[in-house]
Design a protein around this nucleic acid. Structure first.
Lengths: 194, 194
DNA sequence: TCCTCCTTGGCATTGAGTGCCAAGTTAGCA
DNA sequence: TGCTAACTTGGCACTCAATGCCAAGGAGGA
C-alpha cells in the first residue's frame, strides 16, 4: 500500500518473476519447470524467490486465496432481498478485477493441466467458502438444518458451478467475460431444476 | 485379487503400515509426522514404503481416487427415472463399503485438519467427477447448454453437498451413517430451493 | 553523516519422491 | 527335490521444494 522505493521495487520484481515464470510454464508445463529455472530466467536468487512467493503455486495464484474478504464485501453490497444465486454470481464478478485480464485465460489453462495447481485452486475455494458461508446463511436462514450446513453447501455449489462454467468457457476460447456469466447461469439453472 | 503368498503378504503389510501411520497421524498430526517415523514404526524400509504407497497421502486415502468406476456402476444400477439427486446420493452410498468403518471418522477428522489431505481429497472428487459426469448428463440431458457443463455442475454440486454434510456430521459425533444421509438431503434441499 | 530497518543471497538442512542395483524370496516346472 | 524365472526388498544416491540462519548492503530518517 505504501509507496516507498522498497515497495515499488518489490511490486516490479514480483511482476517480472511472474512474467518470466508464466512464459516457462506455458511452454514446458508447470510441473516440468523447476524453481531454479524460473529464478535463472528472472535474475533473482532462489532464496529471495521464496520470500516473494511462499510456494511455486503462488506464482500462478498470487494472493488470490486471501481475497475472500474482498468477495465478502462485494456480496454484502448486494441488496438483501436479491436471490442468493444472483448475489453470489455478481459478488464473484470482482474476481475479474483482481486478475490481470491478459493472464486470466493462460492461468485457467495451466490450472486444468496440472494436478498441483488444481489442488491449490480448490484449496483457495475452500478458504473463500469459510469466509462467505456465514453471510450466505444469514441471508437464506438455516431452514431447520444444523448451523453452517446450508451456507457451506450453497457457497460450495456456486463455486462448483463457476468452475464447471470456466472449464467449458476455456474450451470455447475463453475471451468473453459475459459468456462466462451466461454459462455460470446455465450451470446453476441445471442444478436447481435437476 | 490373486491369493499367492505374495499378494496376501502385501495386503497384510499394507494394513500394518496404515495402522501404525494413522496412530501417529492422530497423535502428532499429518504434516508433523514424517515418512521416516512411519516406516520406523511399521518396520519397513523407506524405499519399500514408497512402493506400497505412491505418496504419503495414499496412506490415508488408499486407492479411493481410482474407485470412480465403482461409483459409476452403482449409479448405473439406479432406475433411469429416479430423480438425479436421489440416484447420486444412493450411488455414493457404496463409498461406505469401501472404507474401513472403524477408520472412517478418524480419516475424516485428519482430512479437515491438514491442507495437504484436503487437497488430495478434493483432487479425488475431481477424478470421480470426470467419470460420473457423462452418465449424469445422459440422464438429465444438456438442457441447451454446451455438452459437459450440466453433468459436471450436477456431480460437483452433489459432492460439495456431501462434503458439507460430512463436516457437520463429524462435528456432531460422526457415528450414524443414516444421519449423514439425512444431512446430505438437507444440504441438497437448501441448494435447490435457495 | 550515522544509525536503524529491511532486503538480499549464499549455505546448510529437512522432507518427499524416484532411479538403479545387488541380494533375497516365491512360484512354477522338471 | 532342485532349478530357474519372476518378483520383492532395502540401500544408496539423487532431484526438487521449502526453511532457518547469517553476513553484507541499500533505503530512509535523525
Amino acid at each position: 500500500m505504501s509507496d516507498r522505493l522498497w515497495d515499488r521495487t518489490r511490486r516490479r520484481v514480483q511482476e517480472e518473476v511472474v512474467d518470466a515464470a508464466l512464459a516457462l510454464f506455458l511452454e514446458h508445463g508447470f510441473e516440468e519447470t523447476t524453481v531454479d529455472q524460473v529464478v535463472a530466467a528472472a535474475g533473482i536468487s532462489r532464496r529471495s524467490f521464496f520470500r516473494y512467493f511462499g510456494t511455486k503455486e503462488d506464482i500462478v495464484f498470487g494472493d488470490l486465496a486471501e481475497q475472500g474478504p474482498v468477495i465478502l464485501e462485494a456480496l454484502r453490497a448486494r441488496p438483501d432481498d436479491e436471490p442468493i444465486w444472483d448475489a453470489l454470481r455478481h459478488a464473484f464478478g470482482v474476481l475479474s478485477t483482481l486478475v490481470h485480464p491478459r493472464r486470466g485465460a493462460a492461468i485457467g489453462r495451466l490450472v486444468t493441466s496440472s494436478p498441483a495447481l488444481r489442488a491449490a485452486h480448490l484449496e483457495k475455494h475452500l478458504r473463500w467458502q469459510q469466509v462467505l458461508a456465514p453471510e450466505v446463511e444469514r441471508r437464506v436462514g438455516t431452514g431447520g438444518a444444523p448451523p453452517g450446513l446450508v451456507g457451506e453447501a450453497i457457497v460450495a455449489t456456486a463455486l462448483a458451478c463457476l468452475d464447471a462454467a470456466t472449464t467449458t468457457w476455456l474450451g470455447q476460447g475463453g475471451d468473453d467475460l459475459d459468456e462466462l456469466a451466461r454459462l455460470t447461469d446455465l450451470a446453476l439453472a441445471a442444478v436447481r431444476s435437476g
